[in-house]
């Protein structure tokens, strides 16, 4: 069944079962592989996108619910990787293997939209994604730096 989606400011047409999770629509039907599959049960957050500005775990979000909303994926976080989060993620060597980091960045970006000067507790609550490599302490530090940048 054909559905129109608005993704990163562009309209894309998708012909898929309306129950297909948005994660797989993005990755397989649209070839947008920046959003990652980690668990499929919304535990890990690797699949995090923004839907109308809110962080959503797309592995549990059906296609039919996504129609009519503004979807932002990691590919659309900034036009040229200039979001302060992206800048500090690189400068501070935050990622190791990097697989969880699309979701980490999208969760962090949603946090900073809602809480421009987050406390450690805010960060822990909003950015509770799983990272197996152990980048948590750097993620937290980079979010604080980006928040300070964005405030200035």
């Amino acid at each position: 069944m054909a559905v129109s989606l608005s993704i990163n400011g562009e309209v894309k047409e998708v012909d898929a079962d309306p129950q297909t999770p948005l994660l797989w629509v993005l990755r397989d039907y649209l070839g947008m592989t920046g959003t990652k599959f980690g668990c499929g049960i919304a535990q890990c957050g690797a699949c995090t996108v923004h839907i109308d500005g809110a962080a959503v775990r797309s592995c549990q979000y059906p296609l039919e619910s996504a129609a009519g909303s503004e979807i932002t994926t990691i590919e659309g976080l900034s036009p040229d990787s200039t979001h302060p989060l992206q800048k500090y993620w690189v400068e501070m060597n935050v990622p190791q293997c990097g697989y969880c980091q699309s979701g980490m960045l999208m969760a962090a970006a949603a946090l900073l939209q809602e809480i421009p000067e987050p406390t450690d507790e805010d960060i822990e609550q909003y950015v509770n994604n799983i990272c197996r490599c152990g980048t948590y302490t750097r993620v937290r530090a980079a979010i604080h730096k980006a928040a300070a940048d964005m405030k200035a």
Partner: peptide, 10 residues
């Protein structure tokens, strides 16, 4: 590889 990680293209 970090620049490609942070924009989802790796």
């Amino acid at each position: 590889q970090l620049p490609k990680i942070v924009n989802g293209s790796l």
